[in-house]
Amino acid sequence: MATAAAEFLRPSLGKRVSQKRYPLFLVAPAFLTLFLLTIYPFIYMVWISFHKWPILPTLPRDFVGLATYSFIFRDPEFWNSVGVTATYMFLSVGLQLSLGFFLALLVAAPNPVLRWFRLPFIIPVFVSPVVVGLIWKFMLGYDLGIINYLLRSIGLEGVNWLGDQTNALLAVVLVDVWQWTPFTFLILHAGLSSLPSEPYEAAALDGASRFQMLRYITLPMITPVLTVALLFRVLDAFKLFDVIYILTRGGPGNATNLLAYNIWRKGFFENQLGYAAALSVIMIIIATVLALVLIRVMARQDRE
């Protein structure tokens, strides 16, 4: 009887096979989407990077192996680009996190007036980067810009924002900080709001100062959220193109020639898709390594 029941309940061979395949069917749409939109284009990009590849098929597309990579690593412009991107990223993301954290702390304070600032703080995030670039281009003008006008009206010298190598990079950082600090503010504000109140109550009973609470309670507890914000902003900073395109075009000299802008120029303005693909592969590798380091840090924090 029991055997008959087991036999009855046992699925047929076809059913067993389809049960085995069932998870595959579930995963297939996601895999297919990922393959078509990410994996295949990436493999194709790597393939192109081994070629001299003009857009026009009527011109020769020669296989050059690793020659393009070899050229890139010997090219001082590439290393300049890497240096400029790293400097910009370090300054910009660092400032965004610091200011975002400060603002989040400010708004988290039990002050009803400051809470009204939450919305105005995040407005820059909603503005298109191209519009941001145009607005700042006007504001940073040496003779007619409002920023220099304000500086001069209080008796200071006007700053040559976009015509000087150091200042131009700082101007790009300034614009990026203005636009994206609200993003880090938003994430950190959410993180601070979700912190439990018990540790603070206990610390207050023990007589801890506000600074000690910040240093020994808030910072350790908010670090995972900070790391997430850092990850987002670092990867985003790598892609900065539109603001550079509008604001400086990579100049003066090559002071603001960030990697992403360089890739656009090589690919779409100089018709060197092979070169642009090789630069993109290198940029993806650098970004992936950075992301892996940050993800590992996050995993360690989770374990702790």
């Binding site: 003779d143 976009l162 015509g163």
Partner: peptide
């Protein structure tokens, strides 16, 4: 020339001139 001349393209030079600067 203006201090930020290395940031000046054709449009900006024309604007500079047309504004009497």
């Amino acid at each position: 020339m203006p201090a930020d001349v290395l940031d000046m393209d054709y449009d900006r030079v024309n604007a500079h001139m047309s504004q009497g600067l």
